[in-house]
Simulated scan of single mutants.
Amino acid sequence: MAEADPAIARDSVNEAPAAPTPTRKPWARWALMLVVPLALAVGALLYWQSLSGKVSTDNAYIKQDMVAVSAEVGGRIVEAMVTDGAVVKPGELLFRIDPEPFRLQIAEANAAIAGAQANVIALSNAPELTGTDIEAARSDVAFAEARFERVAALRQKGFSTKADYEAAEQAVVQAREAVRQAEDRQREARARLATGAAVPGVNPQVAAAEARRANAELALRRTEVRSPAAGRIAQADRLQVGQQVVPNLPVLTLVREGSTYVEANFKETDLADMAVGQRAEVRFDAYPDLVLKGRVAAIGAGTGAEFSVLPAQNATGNWVKVTQRVPVRIALEGTSPRRLIAGLSSEVTVFTDTSARN
């Protein structure tokens, strides 16, 4: 039929030959199947190597030593020199309590001292201490004895009655008793002027009054509350003029300068190779570009749960084991170019390799 139709024959002659079908290379598929797992294995190995020899935690915070500043005497605040955020030096005046009540106590103590000193002078000049009454009493004894001897001699001659004799004898007894009483009064006066071993050379009444004055002077000095150390003032909301201060009740808080460290709470499973002195790096959420060097200063003596107000009670049937956290103190090295604020979050990496301790 093709030969009968010359047009069909020509179309068949003009058709191009069919393209050959490409053959698949089996080794490419196998290479792909090997490369992907190998790349994953290499990546896992590199990641594991990057983690070996160090432990990290983001459960870490900046800590600073804080001093609760309180007044040792009570009274009304009459002057406040600092506010929140103020930087103070050691011994700098923070606030002053009304000193007038303590000045009155000093005046009262001075009056008590003067009274005690006047009493000492009066006792020193008393007749009981000088012995004049003793001499007078002894003179009375001599007179009574002489009279008794005369009465006794007259009685022997019959010129005196028995009543006169007994009266003269009684007068001698009374005169001798007066001498004894005068001597007792002298010893009592000397005892009032005596000094004890605790305050030799000072009358006890004078010493007591001087002690009251010293106590009042100490209280007066304590009306000026000064900074115990260098640092920054915080929580000074109660530091207001007119505020009544209660002794030993904190009025403000002083964050000590140079006391910054980091407390990192590591899992108990991370402590196997950790030791004091190992090198550490600290990064801060507030300052992403800041990295500070440090050292492990101390490893906590107990977990955080152990020192909590209400420790966990695990003696129950539904107990679930929880990985505990142990506080590790990181001492920072050098000076931070940025201000470190207590409580800021941080991330700590400790290099547990033994060679990292140096």
Rank of each mutant, 00 (worst) to 15 (best):
M81P: 00
N119I: 01
L93F: 02
R155E: 07
V87P: 00
R96D: 08
D140W: 05
A116K: 00
A122R: 14
T132N: 15
R96H: 08
Q181W: 07
A111E: 09
G131L: 03
Q105C: 04
I121L: 10
S139M: 10
Q186C: 06
V172R: 05
A182H: 13
T83V: 13
G158T: 14
L129V: 02
N110D: 14
A116L: 00
L104Q: 06
V82M: 05
I121E: 14
A136W: 06
E145R: 10
A153T: 04
L154I: 02
E145A: 12
P127Y: 11
Y165V: 02
A111W: 01
Q117Y: 00
G158V: 05
P101C: 10
Q186W: 10
Y165W: 12
N125H: 12
R147H: 12
P127E: 08
D98T: 03
V87H: 11
V87A: 15
R185I: 05
L129H: 01
L123A: 08
F102Q: 02
A163N: 09
E108P: 07
R138D: 15
T83Q: 12
I134A: 15
A137E: 02
T130K: 15
R103V: 09
L94D: 00
E135G: 14
A122D: 14
F159M: 06
I97N: 01
G115W: 01
D84W: 05
V151Q: 03
E177H: 11
A152F: 01
A144F: 04
A137N: 07
Q105I: 04
I113P: 04
L93C: 05
R185W: 07
G91S: 13
A126Y: 11
A137V: 02
K157E: 06
R150Q: 14
R180G: 10
R185V: 06
R155S: 05
A114N: 11
A80T: 11
A153N: 08
Q181M: 11
E177I: 06
T161F: 07
A153E: 14
A137S: 15
I106P: 00
E166D: 05
E108M: 04
A116P: 01
Q156K: 11
N125I: 08
D184Q: 15
Q186N: 05
Q156A: 10
F143P: 08
R96T: 15
E145Y: 04
F159C: 02
Q181I: 12
A86V: 05
I121G: 09
A167W: 03
K162V: 13
N110Y: 02
A175S: 12
A111P: 00
E135L: 12
F148K: 02
A118Y: 05
A116E: 05
V87G: 07
F95D: 04
E149M: 10
V172S: 13
M81A: 07
L93S: 06
Q117I: 01
R150M: 11
A109S: 09
A112M: 07
G85M: 04
P127S: 09
P127F: 08
V141G: 07
D84T: 04
S139N: 09
G115H: 03
L129N: 02
E183K: 02
G131D: 10
T161H: 11
Q170D: 12
T132L: 13
R180L: 09
A175R: 03
R176D: 10
T161S: 15
E135Y: 09
A167F: 04
A153R: 06
T83A: 11
A136H: 06
P90M: 04
E149S: 15
R147V: 09
